[in-house]
Nucleic acid binder design. Structure first.
Lengths: 340, 340
DNA sequence: TTGTAAGCGTTATCAA
DNA sequence: TTGATAACGCTTACAA
């Protein structure tokens, strides 16, 4: 079956293809009755404009690339939904790219982004290097980095929507120290080293400001299983730290379970906070405290920012760096006076 | 900055654009030294072929659409990763579409799929209607439906990669009844009504075969919160069913928590199975039994099937319906003799 | 208000 | 082995 083109519609409606083009683009210079005639022809033939040809003619694809690491995908579905919804509102299509160790390196992803001539890119702040960014930069593809603070080179073509994890950690730990708690542990999250670095920096600064030295950074394998195994072993001859900071739910649950099975209970023996919230923190017993970070909104805001960047005159200097606020969610694993 | 085109490269290398096209497409009819000359020009100018123009010229976009409901996204990241990896291997780009109640209806998504002239579509078996499918059908876009069995119209353009949830439920319940357990509950999952229906059908069949009638279908609101609230209330004046089947982790955890807080403990007072596995089932106490369904593989297989369909001569009758097997994962919430 | 024709950046056919 | 040139399906001056 031959694909219907604009020519077929033109012939059917007995007009030129220019006129057809005008009606599908809602140009208002076309007379009512010819518009109707064209519409009928479109309906009758089931014509759908070829977006590829439009893209070529307009040098504009109305599609945006989103790139995220495979590992992180499971933790960022809310942000993704925010991105998707706003993209939909502005009628952008989404090209979705994932990066992973073996199979799809950042380099290849960027290559295919450039080739597909997308109008813009959303990047999850993750383990991409500045060199890799550089390429997108050269090709002047507008992009916004979402997640943590982006430290790389910036100009009017790059935006950043982020949570200030460094400050979050700093504020919390400063308060803890003020209250006399300095037995603090930060559990490494290898999925998210860039955010880890910022948390660590914040904690170290708080310790430094109190004239102390932070030595509670614990590093072990990936995922729940290895964290759990680590702590099962660890608690054989160690007591838990008074205050335990994890980045994600599974780590927090891992310490909690291992501790409980070693006879240490939260919050009396150890307090626990997961920085990222998840519904599962509310399902385990005791319920684990965390921070509320409006993830869906982060996605929505990021996409909105990008669409703004795509239409705005370059000199217009709106703010391309948007900080997202967070609020503590105290549950059972923290004491009231320390986490609120 | 003007975008570099094939003409620029041709001029730089002092050849015709046809020759440049040949070298970027690895045509082997081009002489070694001119190939090198062209390659150098490409490097020098940083030329990247315009995939849009290629798509137009070839009537082939080498991109595939994936469509999934927003609600389900969080539960299907593994399948998605499987899809992405295989797409990457075959060099397909991915257009990602989500559907949701208000903002992006299936209809619009299909519209944009047709317009963007993707080569094929992966659909998560969900709440799309046959009418909606019909459109893709008319436009002869190859597609594979992944998840549950697809009941709609099929021809050589549609494949299906699925788990036979009806049989899963049937087998389990038949065994249970044989062992004398017929006090069984199935908790509705509104996120996934098509799978629910199949589970229910399987259970009913098993009851029917035993000359009994299944009346244990429980329907309540969405998500953990409402399930938990429902059971908190329910257990005030009801005892839990002997055997409780949930579709996802949060529902299973909801019954378990509510029951525990009402003084009923698993597995003695109530056995619990979540059909879909998740790591969280292993993190709660007691650990909840489930089924192992190779989700990543389902994605990988689906994408592989689609790519096959895209290249194969239509008459070639390979199997386009692939059943995925599952195995029980007994944990703490089931008794050994009943779930293995 | 409508039509003609050039252009978007490729690939592919045909000649040279 | 290379080069002209006609598609591919659309948008958009410019002319009528």
């Amino acid at each position: 079956m031959k694909r219907i083109t604009i020519y077929d519609v033109a012939k059917e409606a007995d007009v030129s293809l220019a006129t057809v083009s005008r009606v599908i683009n809602d140009s208002n210079v076309v007379r009512e009755d010819t518009r109707n005639r064209v519409q009928e022809a479109i309906e009758k033939l089931g014509y759908k404009p070829n977006a590829i040809a439009q893209g070529l003619a307009l040098s504009k694809t109305t599609t945006i690339s989103i790139v995220m690491s495979e590992k992180l995908l499971a933790y960022n579905t809310k942000i993704l939904n925010g991105l998707m919804d706003v993209a939909k509102i502005y009628n952008y299509n989404i090209m979705f790219h994932t990066t992973s160790k073996g199979i799809s390196k950042m380099q290849d992803v960027i290559e295919s982004i450039i080739k597909s001539r997308v109008d813009g890119v959303i990047l999850f702040n993750d383990n991409f290097t500045e060199d890799e960014m550089e390429v997108l930069h050269e090709y002047q593809i507008p992009m916004v980095v979402v997640g943590a603070r982006f430290e790389g080179k910036k100009d009017e073509n790059v935006g950043n929507v982020y949570v200030d994890f460094e400050r979050l950690a700093y504020d919390l730990v400063r308060d803890l120290i003020e209250q006399g708690v300095d037995d603090i542990t930060l559990m490494e999250d290898r999925l998210n080293l860039s955010m880890m670095k910022q948390l660590k920096k914040g904690i170290e600064k708080a310790f430094e400001d109190a004239g102390k030295n932070f030595e509670g950074y614990i590093s072990y394998g990936d995922g729940y299983k290895s964290s759990y195994a680590f702590f099962k072993d660890y608690f054989k001859d160690h007591k838990p730290a008074k205050f335990n900071m994890a980045f994600r739910d599974s780590q927090a649950i891992a310490v909690m379970n291992a501790a409980a099975e070693a006879g240490f209970h939260s919050p009396e023996d150890l307090q626990i906070v997961s920085v990222l919230d998840s519904k599962y923190l509310n399902m385990v017993r005791p319920r684990i405290s965390s921070y509320n970070i409006p993830e869906y909104d982060m996605g929505a805001i990021s996409m909105r920012l990008l669409t703004k960047m795509l239409v705005s005159d370059r000199d217009q200097d709106e703010n391309r760096n948007i900080e997202i606020s967070y609020t503590p969610i105290p549950r059972d694993t923290t004491k009231e006076e320390l986490f609120y």
